[in-house]
């Protein structure tokens, strides 16, 4: 496992509107955490939350950036983008709310469950956004 003093830091760039590549970052994180011997429940929670965030970056924000920091105690994930931003955050956080267009829905996204899932699977979740500037999500999964 990761040593106590030095967190493992990972960085990913998520391309916009690329449905083939979206998900690569979370798949990579999942494989690394597994290889490090983290408990499977924590690995799964972190991977699902990051996956939902990654898909959002690709479909709602023309791409974005991810920093992950891993210690034996916690998995911290920071996602940020320079996309359109979110005007009504409580509305965006509610189950079933989605602005995804039909073409995105036909690809299997747009149920309006991504942000609620991210909040559900993480122990810390903080979303800040400014319309026209971008969106930032800081979330953490406690390992035990």
């Amino acid at each position: 496992m990761a040593s106590e003093s030095e967190p493992i830091c990972l960085h990913y760039e998520v391309p916009g509107n690329d449905f083939t590549r979206a998900g690569e970052a979370s798949a990579d994180l999942k494989a690394r955490l597994k290889a490090l011997g983290f408990p499977s429940a924590a690995v799964r929670r972190a991977a699902i939350a990051l996956y939902e965030g990654e898909i959002n970056l690709a479909i709602h924000a023309h791409g974005g950036h991810i920093n992950v920091s891993v210690t034996p105690q916690r998995i911290d994930m920071l996602l940020w983008d320079e996309g359109p931003g979110i005007a009504d955050i409580p509305l965006a956080m509610s189950e079933g709310y989605s602005t995804a267009p039909d073409e995105v829905r036909s690809l299997g996204f747009g149920a309006g469950m991504g942000l609620p899932n991210m909040k559900k699977y993480t122990d810390e979740f903080e979303l800040t956004s400014t319309v026209g500037v971008g969106t930032r999500i800081a979330m953490a999964v406690y390992v035990s």
Binding site: I48, Y51, E52, G108, F109, A111, G112, M113, G114, N117
Partner: peptide, 8 residues
């Protein structure tokens, strides 16, 4: 057919 439903 909705992936976030599967992930929920």
């Amino acid at each position: 057919d909705m992936m976030s439903d599967v992930l929920a």
